[in-house]
Design a protein around this nucleic acid. Structure first.
Lengths: 351, 351
DNA sequence: ATGCGATCCCAAACCGCTTTGGAACCCCGC
DNA sequence: GCGGGGTTCCAAAGCGGTTTGGGATCGCAT
């Protein structure tokens, strides 16, 4: 016995055929209960675990799903969000005993990557992250017949497909309304890159809330960029130094929110008193919004949980390829922290 | 022709045996150049790409490597570092056409995960991240005969094994010396969790430099914890408010450094003038240390690059299982930014 | 012509599992 | 005592490649 125990050896020891042993272990009905137990016991005793490579060839299924991380996303803030999303999805996969394949490909190499996954047969389906406006990947995956679920919707796509998304529009609408209710009128939006669909929806929610109250949107109060601490800092700095500065900010991420806080405090102002701030909190496992009491007022939705659910949807889709596409829209909750307060009565002193 | 083209079909079209076609495509010498070209052309024309499942079974190799993310690491700052490391490793894998398997397992479930990877034969080797003191995984992997490379060394292990590490000790020693040369004498260390080996080495480098100059280490100036913004903030706040506060900080991560900066600036002090700060910069793709000019003085070593190299080492190891273990020690470079300066002549006013 | 080593190609075994199409056996009713 | 219907098991044919062990064919020296 050189290599690990295999089916044939095991069946020899049991004086059974490989067929029966296989069936016993896989729960097929045509095997006597007593035999099944005998087989199970032997399998455990000899530490038998079936060779996945053989199973995959025999069944024609990869028992694995792929996540393609394209270069376009590597350099952006998506990265830490990806990490948590993947961790969440990974939980589902281990529970269901699926493998997770990560493909890191150069920018614009994603189409080839999906085609390769299909041709080589290494995965049964894929999860698409970082969805853009009218994302071409959706059409491609439908065309090559690869099951998939997206995290985020693609505005402008005619196809029907399975997606999981957080209600970004509603989240930012509520956050804006909350600030309006506190008396704020000059509210700034520090958005993520508006090449991504989620950012567009967030802006829509923001402007929705403003126009509903008859407040005109000011282009000088809306920026879009990578969601980093530095970009948040520079965007907020510029706005705070301008005439008619905003009294409140709405930030698309925790990291840019941290930059905005620095800009606020660097001007001798107090966050939550002089200037209010609401962030979108992806509930990242290493970027907690405070320990007990939340620091930032935030619209929160766990991206890790999203990963978990998206993976479940995909596995369901793989098991039932002909079922109609599913859609899941998660609502973000509004968490009241210490970064918001009523608009100051007297306009703050200019710096 | 229902499914994708396979070897047999292709060989029929070419009037060749599957053997010859296989050999032609895989570059074996016993096939005439003309035939080889004919085969290659046909393969391309019919869009043939060999079924990975079949290759894996036939060759007995998985052509994949695994990364096990254990629960112990999911919640900590390791996470974003992991992400970049994995992205780097992923580059190597795609270049070499290997698959990367990510297993997310519950805390303490990692041993079982490694055993399962071995038994099921889904990977040819693994990369071990987040190495701890005398890490038990090293012995385990040697015992079950799974090729591996670690990112970080495990002090206290008797085994010889392949590792890649950054010279953490030297990096922190140099950083400390740099601060000493600037005249600082009260230097604080805000370290990562000292359950991890890298943190222990960093502390060693720190104390090495101090004692070499005859400065005694002050336990009140050394903390260890998760490398988050908040933990950096609280640690620095406490130290700055104490009598005999430090004039300089050495932080184990960008994130905790950002927290320290906030504590400094929140006290009306200027970073780089009143208080100096050096961070360890993992050069994370979404946490850049400034765009043009570095913000923080830092010891920098790209964790992404480390991932790339570690993956290369592992693939080499898989291809040459009997080669002796390799060791790679990367040196961090000292980047001078705006967060350090000579110690202030007059002790700063107490807050 | 004959022998002989290269060169080029092929038939068939094999990797370790699943799955199809029976076979053997038993129980039962008529 | 025999046909029919369950139950329980098995032999063998895949899955789609790789790899072993030759078999032709050819050029060339003998």
């Amino acid at each position: 016995m050189t290599g690990p125990m295999n089916l044939k050896e095991l069946s020899l020891k049991l004086n059974l055929s490989p067929t029966t042993v296989s069936r016993a272990l896989n729960g097929y009905p045509e095997v006597k209960a007593a035999t099944r137990e005998r087989v199970a016991a032997a399998a455990k005793r000899f530490n038998y675990s079936p060779n996945q490579r053989a199973i995959r060839l025999a069944t024609g299924r990869a028992h694995a799903v792929g996540h393609v991380i394209s270069g376009a996303l590597q350099n952006e803030i998506m990265n830490p969000i990806f990490a948590d999303f993947i961790a969440g999805a990974g939980e589902t996969y281990s529970r269901e005993d699926f493998d997770m394949l990560l493909s890191v490909v150069a920018a614009e190499g994603d189409e080839a990557a999906y085609r390769a996954l299909k041709a080589k047969g290494t995965v049964d389906g894929v999860i698409v992250q970082g969805v853009r406006l009218d994302d071409p990947r959706i059409g491609l995956l439908i065309q090559i017949g690869m099951p998939f679920v997206t995290h985020g919707r693609a505005t402008g796509t005619a196809h029907d497909y399975s997606w999981l998304d957080v209600n970004n529009r509603r989240a930012f609408q509520r956050a804006t309304e909350f600030l309006l209710d506190l008396g704020h009128r000059r509210i700034a939006l520090v958005n993520g890159l508006e090449a991504f669909d989620f950012a567009i929806r967030r802006r829509a929610g923001f402007t929705d809330a403003l126009t509903a109250r008859g407040i005109s949107t000011d282009p000088g109060l809306m920026t879009s960029g990578e969601m980093t601490e530095l970009s948040g800092f520079t965007a907020a700095s510029k706005m705070l130094d301008a005439a008619d500065a905003p009294t409140a900010f709405l930030a698309s991420s925790m990291l840019s929110g941290m930059g905005i806080r620095r800009a606020i405090e660097g001007r001798g102002l107090a966050m939550g008193r002089d200037i209010s701030l609401i962030i979108f909190d992806d509930d990242l496992s290493y970027l907690r919004n405070g320990t007990d009491v939340p620091i930032f007022t935030a619209t929160r939705s766990s991206v890790r949980e999203a990963g978990k659910i998206a993976a479940e949807m995909l596995l369901h889709r793989i098991a039932n390829p002909d079922s109609p596409p599913e859609h899941r829209l998660l609502e973000a909750e509004l968490i009241i922290g210490q970064s918001t307060g009523p608009v100051p009565v007297s306009p703050r002193a200019k710096v």
